[in-house]
């Protein structure tokens, strides 16, 4: 059986749609009968990545590949890049603006959540070019 590949465009202009890609993937995995624990891990990890693309970058593209043993999420943006990944990975570290904080974001917990809920995570970032986060969740 060939792997299922899903593609989403994340629009940074439209905050009202943030989370739609994650929600769509969650629904599909559930219907496919993927175990609830893996679905939850994907939902959390992907939502945090999707929101980061909206609030810290200019949106971007998400590709999700579903294989019999793994769910692979690739989140690619053309945002400002991450200057100091070690700092960004620290719980509580955030550069979120006041506007975004007023909506409940900016706890500095997104990247730590992504690390915690994925089984593998890799960040490729170039200042001024963009960031690609690859996460894998085992089924």
């Amino acid at each position: 059986m060939s792997n299922l590949v899903l593609k989403y465009t994340v629009d940074a202009e439209d905050f009202t749609r943030a989370g739609e890609a994650s929600s769509d993937v969650k629904g599909k995995l559930k219907r496919m009968g993927v175990p609830p624990d893996a679905v939850r891990k994907v939902a959390i990890a992907m939502y945090e990545g999707e929101i980061n693309m909206v609030i810290h970058a200019d949106g971007g593209e998400i590709t999700v590949e579903i294989t019999p043993s793994q769910i692979i999420m690739i989140l690619a943006d053309k945002g400002p890049g991450i200057k100091d990944i070690d700092k960004a990975m620290q719980a509580g570290w955030s550069t979120a603006s006041e506007n975004v904080r007023a909506l409940g974001f900016g706890a500095g917990m997104g990247l730590p959540n992504m690390k915690k809920y994925s089984d593998e995570m890799k960040i490729d970032t170039v200042i001024g070019v963009g960031t690609t986060v690859t996460m894998k969740v085992n089924i």
Binding site: F15, G19, E20, I51, L103, G104, F105, A107, Y117
Partner: peptide
């Protein structure tokens, strides 16, 4: 705080919050 809720919110919870925005629904 949305990222904390993402990680600690649980199935079936009654979530009491003042965050009346679209992200809370997601």
């Amino acid at each position: 705080l949305m990222s904390v809720v993402m990680s600690k919110g649980f199935p079936g919870a009654a979530w009491v919050t003042i965050m009346a925005n679209i992200n809370a629904v997601a």
